[in-house]
Design a protein around this nucleic acid. Structure first.
Lengths: 249, 249
DNA sequence: ACAAAAGTGTTGGATTTACACCCATGA
DNA sequence: TCATGGGTGTAAATCCAACACTTTTGT
């Protein structure tokens, strides 16, 4: 790379604007939901989009993603954030060449987000409707809107990444509050995968996987049924053995 | 994102140069090797780097990666190419803000690469030496050089991606010629993972995984030992069941 | 008492591992 | 005939899905 920059006879280096876009997933009302903003200005004014913004000259990519996440949602620091992929087709933004580095964030269930500093409005929307074909009116998943730019593809990639990583990493705990029960964790798997899981085998599997869960002491109270023991996320980064999607159901 | 571009009172959009960098892996002399170029101009003149170049205004990111791959190596189209990650820390290039989208390419064993149009020289180097601590002189893996920019990290990420994907995808076939034997495929796994694998169980596993291999008819001749049947890559994208690294040895 | 959710035990089938064994060729 | 790598058979160990069953709460 970088054939020349100081030689006057060479062609100019092509420049592009660099943004970060966020796929912020959570679970609300027993559905997988994503954080969306309503655009206030062209292009795609009035349409839904993923939150994001330009990368400033003095910050790293992940810093920019964390800043946008805090700006747009006021979420506390306890959020999983990882790079997803980069989207840079010419023409994906009609104004100028924009290369967008997408980040995937997973957050526990939260009350309604507060509007950020510059976003018109911010809301959690079920991913099912946003990923459905494009009914434009009312589809089988209810009325849905389309996302601006190529954000539908970015969302699809983010959801697929999350689904895949639940199998072999303790990422599902990122959807849970700091202290949670095995039943809550199982509901995360069922909702993200869209399957049903045997509660008994799941319990044995996750409590038997070293480093996945550590007992937090105490139990739930005031719930239906027998109280459940509480756990925190363990320190394992990979799960051995992995939980297999497509089995067990 | 994209708060404003047409409003005169807003600050200017920060721009960056966008490059693609390539981690091209192959197997040579029973070692995992990566394609490197010797830089001819500052910064890091004379040092080793991953091949790459600027993304042109009218091409997609993957087109830029494919173009650089062809330019620098003359490799035919039969190469696996996938996006790896994006690196954009300020200061990673001392001249200007450069955001680099790294791609991972896997190629079958090939004769020595021909020098490309603009690269001073191109060579395959074992990854072990490039990833080793930084002995600067002679380490346990032999004398090694350091890579320019943050290319050591990019290489490490690419190797880790390849190792992980061998488990659950038929990616190992990308290191093999179009027609290959089970023994060749096993050697790919052993070299990339740095483990030894039982040949008998490996044979049953890969031939029993639907869609992984399709018989190509015929057998090897002139080799030592019993002739081996020939196979081509199947059409499966995911392996069920997966081959487990860390077992079997 | 009943429903509901948590958690444990058990069992039959599938999968994995280790290795004995045979096959087909070159030297 | 031996060495070398290819390929199959098989038994023990292990893992896993299915489900019976007990525990502990709210109503």
């Amino acid at each position: 790379m970088a054939q020349s920059v100081a030689h006057a006879a060479e062609p100019a280096i092509p420049m592009a604007a660099v943004t970060v876009d966020l796929v912020v997933l959570t679970i609300r009302d027993d559905e997988l939901a994503v954080l969306c903003v309503r655009r206030g200005i062209p292009p795609f004014a009035g349409k839904l989009a993923l939150p994001g913004g330009f990368v400033r000259p003095d910050e790293t990519l992940v810093m920019a993603a964390a800043r946008e996440l805090a700006d747009e949602t006021g979420l506390p620091g306890e959020v999983h954030l990882e790079q997803l992929a980069t989207y840079g087709d010419p023409g994906r933004d009609p104004r100028l060449r924009v290369v967008s580095v997408a980040y995937l964030a997973l957050a526990p269930s939260l009350p309604t987000p507060r509007a950020g500093s510059d976003a018109a409005d911010v809301s959690w929307l079920p991913v099912a409707g946003l990923l459905a074909g494009r009914p434009s009116g009312s589809g089988p998943s209810g009325p849905s809107e389309e996302l601006a730019f190529d954000h539908r593809q970015i969302l699809a990639d983010g959801v697929e990444r999350a689904r895949a990583k639940l199998e072999y990493s303790p990422l599902a705990t990122a959807f849970c509050p700091p202290v949670f029960t095995v039943g809550q964790l199982r509901r995360v798997y069922e909702i993200v995968w869209g399957t049903s899981i045997d509660p008994r085998n799941f319990h044995r599997k996750v409590t038997g996987t070293p480093g996945f869960l550590v007992p937090a002491g105490g139990s739930t109270v005031g719930e239906r049924g027998r109280p459940a023991r509480l756990y925190r996320k363990g320190d394992a980064e990979l799960l051995h053995p992995a939980l297999l999607r497509g089995a067990n159901c």
